[in-house]
């Protein structure tokens, strides 16, 4: 019984998972690669922590920090470059 109960719970969780993905996936907005650096900066950084002001680092430091965060947050190359370009412009 315990075995069946465990797998029933997993099955319900799995179906719920795919239902959520389907619903929210359909509601997706602008293509990510078409978004501005400012928008991508807000979306990607705020997912885990408070966003740091562009002025908090120099242009050269943003280049290094950007590469570090690209790895950590699995950002694609184009998204990383757009965020770094925005931070350097706003700096």
């Amino acid at each position: 019984m315990k075995f069946i109960k465990k797998y029933m719970v997993n099955l319900i969780l799995g179906l719920g998972f795919f239902a959520v993905l389907t619903i929210v996936g359909c509601a997706s907005t602008t293509n990510i690669v078409d978004r501005s650096g400012a928008q991508l900066w807000g979306e990607n950084c705020a997912r885990c922590h408070n966003i740091r002001p562009p002025q908090s680092l120099t242009d050269a430091q943003w280049e290094v920090a950007g590469m570090h965060m690209r790895t950590r947050a699995n950002l694609s190359g184009i998204v990383t470059r757009k965020i770094i370009d925005f931070l350097k412009t706003a700096n």
Binding site: S28, N31, I32, T71, N74, L75, S76, I78, V79
Partner: peptide
């Protein structure tokens, strides 16, 4: 080996 790929308005990550 890791990375992320935008797919229209969504994104997948893998490692």
């Amino acid at each position: 080996l890791r990375g992320g790929t935008p797919i229209k308005g969504s994104k997948i990550e893998y490692a």
